[in-house]
Nucleic acid binder design. Sequence first.
DNA 1: GCAAGGTC
Length: 672
Amino acid sequence: MGEKFLIIAEKPKAALRIALALSEGRITKHRMCKVSYWSFNADGNTYFVVSAAGHMFDITSEVKGFPVFEYRWEPLWIIDRNSAFKRKFFKVIRNLSKKVHGYIVACDYDVEGSVIGYKIVEALNGLDRARRMIFSSLVREDVRRAFDNIMPSLDWNIIEAGLTRCELDWLWGINISRLLAKAFREVTGEKILLSAGRVQSPTLVEVACREEIRKLHVPIPYFTIRAEVLVKDKKYELTYVGRPFKTKKSAEELTSKIRKLRIAEVHLSTVTRSPPPPFNLGSLQREAYRIYGFSPLRTQRIAEDLYLDALISYPRTSSQKLPDHLDNLSILKRLKEHQEYGSIISRLLAETKGVLRPAEGRREDPAHPAIYPTGVLPQEMNNSKWKIYDLVTRRYIACFSKKAVLKRLSAFFDVEREVLFKLEISGIVHEGWTRYYPFVKCRTYEPADLREGDVVEISRVHVEMKYTNPPRPYNKANLLKWMEEKQVGTESTRARIIEVLVKRGYLVEWGRGNLTTTILGEILSEIFKTYFPQISSTDLTRKFEQYIDAIINERKRRHEVIEEAKKLLSKVLKDAGEHSKSIGIVLAYSTNHVNAEKCEICNRRRLKNSIYCAYHNKAYTSLVNGYTDWNKALGSIGWREYLMEICKLKLTGSWILDVAKHILSRENIMGE
DNA sequence: GCAAGGTC
Ligand SMILES: [Zn+2]
């Protein structure tokens, strides 16, 4: 009789793939408590492959108050109402554990996976009988290699690093969150739910900084010339590229002088656009937002659904590379049976003559490849699900295709040797991959008969007044991109954390999905920057990464790192605690709990020696400075007229608008 | 109750 072993995977899909890879396909499927597991025999032994459902244990604490430095690990199905379903997964694991001789942790090979496996084996009292399989893909050969070269014990350094990550996040997040709530409660006597964290707080601060600039934006007029030329019966709109005008008068003077333009230079260039790489979660979320207006979280939910239906591969990946050994030809042939894709796949196979070399992106992932369709044909599904499936599939098909070719013509126009205008025409001359992925704008190239030295007639020319623009607002998709670029959060958490900022009332959506800060969001951002500079910056994540690295390489121990963090945190909490009253007061103002000493415009606290709060006071200063710029540009304009113009402009920042309106209304009252 | 991180 051989021995029995329990192989623990991180998720059910992985468990099945591992069982298949190690058994040459001869597996038995079992069900217990509505959870699947698999068994097979190899080298005379019996193996049961079971699955966790992500993290099964988490940190919690009895201590209700603050600060809190004591905590312990508990099953998630007990401490988190939304994790009740995990109980049945653990029941199966515990049940089977009774008949096995040892454990094999086969969770994803990263710090989180190692913690997931460790916590389960620890709960089973099996740490001395546990081994670790290390693989970074679920391709049969990789899993087999991991099995043949199994680690004789658990990967302790990585486990320790993962535990450190968990503890640090908990300590920083919970303590600062509680300090804020307590400060508020002591001023107002009311409860409030406030939060701070290594990922959410820098993200909130980023939006708040962008929005501060936008809300304080005073549009300043400037002048440019719009000209239209007529060449062989075709009209072309030119862009002014000459020296900027300081005043309206100088623009008008130049305009009156221009009669004809000489084509000074013409450049014709060919630009190629390589096929896009297959999606990772971030690029899929951005495209779904751009094309369909889906929020990143919605796209993620749908992609997870498609993954559970076995229609697409694992979606929570950052990789832009398909697996090396993926049988693309057989996937494409199966997809070809679908009426939507039949003709384009026939065309692709003809175009590539069956030589399939997928485009790749730079980004990688420690445990998962890029997202691709599995070749399982979709049944009936709702519209939005189909949209995401279709995006993934077309992107996959397109990545085997050829470059798209664009032509670009740039022409420069001068008067007396001074280049004043530019014309740029571009368009596609060879469709390439855009034929398969039709979600990109593609004008066809229309050649223009422009030759250097020719003199062209101006059909229309006039001075145009424009206004300076504020920076673009964030939306959920480009905020997610910012998080990716700053490398904070993970594929599974970024969209969720953005939703937390909205749900807690720190950010709100307006217009077509733009994000702005609420008063509470602005105040929290100010509090973080003033009292908790560490948690306001993405550098805290870098610091955590250094710790994790040091622990994996045995340069530091978890205990040291945690003690160091507690020491720093104690000091930070103590210093901020000394300002608890003022933190509480600004929070109370921001939630409209105080009526005295209020700004004349909003609910924030009034500054000393001002009728306005700090923000409206800044806005007042910007408004006064803007008046000087307006006078320079327009010659001369009255203060009142200036304010009225400012109120009319869409580009005006909201605090500027508030103050301008407020001044005007006061003048009206005083005039009566 | 508060984090961030897995996964259903
Ligand atoms: Zn105000």
